[in-house]
Computed example of a mutant assay.
Amino acid sequence: MTIHLNVPGADDLTRAVDVLREWQSDTDPVQLHPGDIGWFWRWGTTATAAAVRTWTRDGHVLAVGLLDGADLLRLSTAPDVRRDESLARRMVADVTTPERGVLPGGEVMVEAPPGALVSELLGEAGWGDDEPWAPLVRDLAGPVEDPGVRVEVAGPDRAGERTAVHRAAFGGPSFTDDRWHAMAAGPLYADARCLVAYDEAGTAVGATTVWSAGAGRPGLIEPLGVHPDHRGHGYGRAVTLAGVAALRELGSSSAVVITESARTPAVATYVSAGFDRLPDRLDRRRAG
């Protein structure tokens, strides 16, 4: 049967998100998550729809991709087709042919789940390894430690504090209050929480957003940051624990996060908050 590449319209995004929810599993952690699309929603519904790609066969969604920027495609597949050769070869053809509207020419990257045949075929086609990423997972069966600082859920009244911490932590101006409201207006935010941590003086020092994929499935921390003026005081661990507790309240079975392996302090923070580090992941990169 023929495999089709699709750019879902705004009304079809729900289908892609629904299959991503179904694919989340504690036995197959840290893949493209509904929360990744939820976080992208800060750019608005139209932009989010334009950034999603699906591959279908006989009406069934087999793979979902998110163009997380112009040069990075983040992929996940249904678990039972991860080694499907016809799907993998079609996906490789699509991502390596700019005219098909997935990735442009030049230097680009593809993130795929471990063991996915599409990654191996890209390697055979001359794509190299990109910088390593560290996936981390924490089981949520047991209680979560108290963060030790005041942490509040950031609704519309605290959006400014949430976005200000993010801009300071990541050094970029793009996450404005308007972007927060666009994200919060998206359908995926119903299963998410924004959290802000405060020091004893009441200053916002750290923040995160966490995303549930439904009860009994892994939840995602994306993103998490501490204001640079307040690092080194344990606030990263505190806001991580608050995020983990929020995911547990939302019914998540585990909490997952992925960060650059080179960000040693970030990895250490997650480990200190009870996360287990999994083997590093390597994206595929085609040189320009």
Score class of each variant (00 low, 15 high):
residue 2 T to Q: 10
residue 6 N to G: 05
residue 8 P to D: 01
residue 9 G to N: 13
residue 16 A to T: 03
residue 20 L to P: 00
residue 20 L to S: 00
residue 21 R to S: 01
residue 23 W to C: 09
residue 28 D to A: 07
residue 30 V to R: 04
residue 34 P to R: 01
residue 45 T to P: 12
residue 46 T to S: 10
residue 47 A to W: 10
residue 47 A to Q: 15
residue 47 A to G: 14
residue 50 A to H: 00
residue 50 A to F: 02
residue 52 V to A: 01
residue 52 V to Q: 00
residue 53 R to G: 02
residue 55 W to I: 02
residue 55 W to H: 00
residue 56 T to M: 03
residue 56 T to G: 01
residue 59 G to V: 06
residue 67 L to R: 09
residue 68 D to H: 10
residue 70 A to P: 15
residue 73 L to H: 05
residue 74 R to V: 15
residue 74 R to M: 13
residue 76 S to Q: 08
residue 79 P to C: 04
residue 86 S to I: 04
residue 86 S to E: 14
residue 88 A to R: 00
residue 91 M to V: 07
residue 92 V to W: 05
residue 92 V to F: 05
residue 94 D to K: 03
residue 96 T to M: 04
residue 98 P to V: 12
residue 101 G to K: 08
residue 102 V to Y: 03
residue 103 L to K: 06
residue 110 V to A: 09
residue 115 G to F: 07
residue 117 L to Q: 00
residue 119 S to T: 12
residue 121 L to S: 09
residue 123 G to I: 09
residue 124 E to N: 11
residue 125 A to L: 13
residue 126 G to M: 13
residue 128 G to D: 11
residue 128 G to Q: 05
residue 132 P to G: 14
residue 132 P to F: 08
residue 133 W to I: 10
residue 134 A to D: 00
residue 137 V to G: 12
residue 137 V to C: 12
residue 137 V to S: 06
residue 144 V to L: 08
residue 149 V to R: 03
residue 151 V to H: 05
residue 155 G to A: 06
residue 156 P to Y: 12
residue 166 H to D: 11
residue 166 H to C: 09
residue 167 R to I: 00
residue 168 A to I: 13
residue 169 A to H: 08
residue 172 G to T: 15
residue 178 D to M: 05
residue 179 R to G: 13
residue 179 R to P: 11
residue 182 A to W: 08
residue 186 G to F: 02
residue 186 G to M: 04
residue 188 L to D: 14
residue 192 A to P: 08
residue 198 Y to Q: 06
residue 198 Y to T: 06
residue 204 A to L: 03
residue 206 G to L: 15
residue 206 G to Y: 12
residue 210 V to F: 02
residue 210 V to C: 02
residue 210 V to R: 02
residue 212 S to G: 04
residue 214 G to S: 08
residue 215 A to D: 13
residue 216 G to Q: 10
residue 218 P to A: 06
residue 219 G to P: 01
residue 222 E to D: 15
residue 224 L to C: 07
residue 226 V to S: 09
residue 226 V to K: 05
residue 229 D to V: 11
residue 229 D to H: 11
residue 231 R to Q: 06
residue 234 G to Q: 03
residue 234 G to C: 07
residue 236 G to L: 05
residue 237 R to M: 03
residue 241 L to R: 08
residue 245 A to R: 15
residue 245 A to E: 14
residue 254 S to H: 08
residue 257 V to P: 05
residue 261 S to T: 09
residue 262 A to M: 03
residue 264 T to Q: 06
residue 268 A to L: 10
residue 268 A to S: 12
residue 269 T to A: 13
residue 273 A to I: 08
residue 273 A to T: 08
residue 275 F to S: 04
residue 276 D to I: 06
residue 280 D to G: 01
residue 280 D to S: 05
residue 283 D to R: 15
residue 284 R to F: 04
residue 285 R to D: 13
